[in-house]
Design a protein around this nucleic acid. Structure first.
Length: 388
RNA sequence: GUGGGUGUAGCCCAGAGGCCUAAGGCGUCAGGUUGUGGCCCUGAAGAUCGAGGGUUCGAAUCCCUCCACCCACC
């Protein structure tokens, strides 16, 4: 029996159901991030109210603090944080490279220093699996090695091949049958390497596949080219998870390319800085214009924040740096993302994905073109040494 | 009233004859954040340096007068 039921497709876009030990998850789905066993500022009842069926947590952070033994002793991650929905744990591969500059990779595993106290640690693929089995997450990720966006192709291939060997070892080590282990495709920004990665990992019959190593500052067009290229070779009957992406417009784009699952810190992180999503685009609640707005952030939004408070009140809380500001903004942005995915799914099921996408994109004011160009040039500049 | 101190952007302040076209922080105004540190990063606006006079090639800076505020003593 398969864990994933592909209900329908609409072009490349897909609607399905992913069965986990903690519920059936309608896909496509957006997973709020709760790295340290908490979706920052929210209690589980509030996450439930968002209608988020699954959240993401993080092996790296939980391993360092409070440690797997404590979580195990207290009944596993679900009980520890009182969340009875599904949980996906990231393996920590990404954090080792992004958070800690002092890490060294070998075939055996990765040695790194804690960003908290500087202590030394060593994680092997087997240990990454054991940790996640200890946490008891519903979906575990293999230990992978993402490549920095400026890595030369030799290094990218090396990291990809190591990721493949680690994936095999994770699969062998994995034991819990109430937990699914997903593989992670790497291969940088090279089409042939991406394809190579997909084909190798597909042969190992994982219950799900993630696309890693993207959205690292590269131009959007390149991100989507890689996603399109990757999903076309992935097995259609398995869920596809695009890691670490993205913004509201990214959700639509990715689903349109055949992605089923996504997670991103963006909605929660920018929320804490006053950036709020609406169907007409992103706003900054700190802007002077909102100081006197009696209407909510978005009239048509059904979130707790918008059904209880004016934009002026939220604006006041931000200017006063009140803790409630972060909570209300987080609730709004996450509900926006979850609801957007729900609407996308409804559109796919009724065969109207394309028109939904067109309508959304024409309503939604995307990041200024100037900013995008500046980011692109910055990325090109960073890679220049390799080109020379 | 006498003695002392302080006056530089909305607020706190750096500067002590020329590198001042006056620095920094907070605040204000606007951007950014993509497998999470509520951090942080980037821009912008905003100052006839309390007022007036003088010395000097040159004054926020030295001198004089006045004004305001603070402290102490009457």
């Amino acid at each position: 029996m398969s864990n994933f039921n592909l209900i329908t497709t609409n072009g490349a876009a897909r609607a399905g159901e992913l069965t986990t030990a903690h519920g059936i998850i309608p896909t496509p789905v957006f997973m709020p991030v709760g790295s340290q066993a908490t979706v920052k500022t929210l209690v589980p009842d509030e996450i439930r109210a968002l209608e988020a069926p699954i959240i993401l947590s993080n092996t790296y952070h939980l391993y360092l603090r409070p440690g797997v033994d404590i979580i195990k002793k207290l009944g596993g991650l679900h009980r520890f944080m009182d969340w009875n929905g599904a949980i996906l744990t990231d393996s920590g591969g990404y954090q080792v490279f992004s958070l800690s500059a002092l890490s060294t990779v070998s075939d055996e595993g990765v040695a790194f220093r804690s960003h908290i106290d500087g202590s030394s640690h060593f994680i092997t693929p087997e240990k990454a699996v054991a940790l996640q089995e200890g946490f008891g997450s519903d979906i575990a990720m293999v230990l992978d090695e993402p490549s920095p966006s400026d890595a030369p192709s030799g290094k990218v291939r090396e990291a990809m091949e190591r990721t493949h060997r680690w994936a095999e070892r994770c699969l062998t080590a994995h034991q819990r049958n109430d937990q699914q282990l997903f593989a992670i495709v790497q291969g940088g920004f090279d089409r042939s390497m991406r394809r190579c990665s997909v084909e190798f990992l597909s042969s190992l019959d994982f219950p799900g596949y993630a696309i890693g190593g993207l959205s690292l500052g590269e131009p959007k067009e390149l991100t989507w080219e890689m996603v399109r290229h990757t999903t076309q070779y992935l097995p259609s009957r398995k869920p596809r998870y695009l890691m670490g992406v993205g913004s509201p417009e990214d959700l639509i784009e990715a689903v349109g390319l055949g992605v089923d699952m996504m997670d991103c810190v963006l909605p929660t992180r920018v929320a804490r800085n006053g950036a709020l999503f609406t169907r007409r685009g992103r706003i900054n609640i700190n802007n002077a214009a909102f100081r006197e707005q009696g209407a909510p952030i978005e009239e048509s939004c059904d979130c707790y924040t918008c059904t209880h408070f004016s934009a002026a009140y939220v604006s006041h809380l931000f200017h006063a740096q009140e803790l409630l500001a972060y909570r209300l903004a987080t609730i709004h942005n996450l509900r926006f993302m979850v609801r957007l995915m729900q609407d996308i799914r409804t559109a796919i099921l009724s065969g109207a994905f394309d028109s939904f996408r067109q309508q959304f994109m024409s309503d939604y004011r995307i990041t200024d073109e100037e900013v995008r160009i500046a980011q692109k040039q910055k990325w090109i500049k960073a890679r220049k040494p390799e080109i020379d």
